[in-house]
Design a protein around this nucleic acid. Structure first.
Lengths: 349, 349
DNA sequence: CTGAAAGCGCTTACAG
DNA sequence: CTGAAAGCGCTTACAG
């Protein structure tokens, strides 16, 4: 046994004078050999520093890796710092963990020019909120199970919430006080990069495929129903759901001259809403008296503060659990539509 | 070509009438064949649905997988929802991503009885804040690079902050107003499960190995220096760094009879401090007039609210970056001690 | 209950 | 620039 090379199953077999099949069985199929022999093999393995069959070889041989990949819409850096994506991942992780699988994280829009070749090691793929027609999707192994979340991939099961309906209901609630100047702050709604007011110059992303379009449709439905002319409602766009990106856009909105500042902000995420709230507090704008704010998501940060955010709670953790269960075959691969809950906080009572 | 089987490199080779080596070279070593032939191979591959060499086989052959595993102290579910761990992971991800590697997440204390066999597929391991002597560590392939973060593994490089020094400084700051009844809320300091006041019955975790001990030592040093008898300072313990676990412990502390309630809480994490702040607000306890609160970590949630948390900022993202760089060999494997910054917010001016 | 043998899909010296 | 061949470390029918 050279000190340099890692010990293999074969080494161990010849060391113990048994066949490689027996060693393999000792690790993988306890019923295929006597307990006595198995114990001897396992203890000798430990003594000699053999840590069990190599995962690379095993996965080549069996075709399975016990790894499930999640492909995230954004960079890993963004996703890991976003409460909603993190919750989703934690739901996925919970199920994988309980079933002996591990989680491989793949960025949807990475620095790398091409998807890492290591991606196709996974037994299955969960695609989270990716823009449709993403190049990456074409490169996924077509034989492997695939579940999409928050958007549709043809031929794959999907986990969704009813974004339009949920948005409709929170807008309807917010409009019951008849605000004079409602406004909508969207999350990545335009095809062009736009961090600010949306104008006639901009084209919107395709209707069917994005949660932003669905949420806006819900807002518009409620606005129309309450007698507002949706054409007149100003729309802003935020490119990335983080404080530093939201902040200048919202500062612009709040710094509008008196009497032109919106008195209701329908925000497409809690992050946007919380940024609005923070900036309003800095300006001594009274919430909700002078400015009502609604969010979307129901993240903890919005509920454990005063005033509490009025928002729609979606159970991202459960979304993750369901997607993972589908991938592992623990649940039929049928489209799922999760329910949401209106949370009435103090920012828009 | 049967429709059932995934196409292999060999299939493609015979389809095109070239050797397997040439196909492999077309994907991996462009300089080994003519551009013309390479283009033909790549376009035929796309046409026939061959997505490039199989990762399992490639990793077996080369011994590398382009996967780096992070082993987390807690369950994946906890870690993904914790701001500090998420930031750390995002730093790791940023570097891996930029260098064509992907991130495999492994739970330190999972539901599964044993570490998933898939773990040893990784090219290297980053171990984050694990308790020492964890069984898992012994099962890691000893040949692979290993970096530990926030604790020491013999023989491996480490990334650290100077917890004791940072704690000393924030406590020193907090004590300048001479509080009458300072108290410390620790994070997982006792060997026994303890969610509440620490008494003589409890044994503390070994000194050298945990950041909690180091932080407490810093607090004690400052307290002694300011003339407090550290024996008299009450200690509480929190088992898990989440609102729902902190909340009852802190409610107990705040509901102490008048004149016995602490007027300074030195908290070992921002999560604990923010929970204390929320509960104090609910009880109309004035912060900082009646109660001063300090945190540790410097998470965004504590800085984007009013009042801002007084805390120590550590750059978890950078910790992650450095650990990843070491694993990838982009940086010498020397122990790193990152600096911290005292953030003076309004909770303890 | 145990062993000999095939083969998972690649990459890589090496010879031409 | 191209091809034939070995072998990475396993698992699994299959025969005994």
């Amino acid at each position: 046994m050279t000190a340099h090379r890692r010990m293999t199953l074969k080494d161990l077999a010849s060391e113990l004078g048994v066949s490689t099949a027996t060693i393999s069985n000792a690790f993988n199929r306890p019923d295929q050999l006597s307990p006595l022999l198995r114990d001897r093999i396992l203890s000798e393995a430990k003594r000699l520093g053999y840590n069990g069959p190599d995962a690379k070889a095993r996965s080549l041989r069996t075709g399975r890796s016990s790894i499930v990949a999640v492909i995230l819409a954004e960079s890993l850096t963004y996703s890991l710092n976003d409460a909603v994506a993190s919750e989703f991942l934690s739901g996925v992780a919970e199920v994988l963990d309980a079933h002996g699988h591990t989680l491989l994280l793949l960025p949807g829009r990475g620095h790398a020019s091409q998807p890492p070749g290591s991606a196709n090691i996974a037994d299955g793929f969960i695609v989270y909120g990716l823009m449709p027609n993403n190049k990456l999707l074409n490169e996924l192994p077509s034989q492997r199970p695939l579940v999409s979340v928050d958007f549709d991939i043809e031929g794959s099961p999907t986990v969704h919430i009813d974004d339009q309906n949920a948005s409709y209901h929170i807008a309807q609630h917010a409009l019951h006080t008849r605000p004079k100047r409602p406004a909508v702050i969207n999350l990545r709604l335009t095809k062009e990069h736009c961090n600010g007011r949306i104008t006639a110059e901009h084209t919107m992303l395709p209707n069917s495929s994005t949660i932003s379009r669905a949420r806006l449709a819900g807002f518009h439905a409620a606005l129309s129903e309450c007698g507002y002319d949706t054409e007149q409602i100003p729309l802003w766009n935020i490119e990335e759901n983080v404080f530093d990106v939201c902040s200048p856009v919202i500062a612009d909105i709040l710094d509008a001259p008196d009497g032109r500042r919106p008195d209701l902000l329908l925000c497409m995420s809690d992050r946007i809403a919380l940024t609005a709230l923070t900036l309003a507090e800095q300006r001594n704008i009274k919430v909700p008296e002078e400015l009502r704010i609604t969010g979307f998501d129901g993240i903890a940060e919005g509920q454990y503060r005063a005033p509490r955010l009025t928002t729609v709670r979606q159970d991202s953790t459960d979304k993750g659990r369901i997607a993972a269960q589908m991938i592992l075959g623990l649940r039929p691969k049928e489209p799922q539509l999760l329910s949401t809950e209106l949370l009435l906080g103090e920012t828009c009572p």
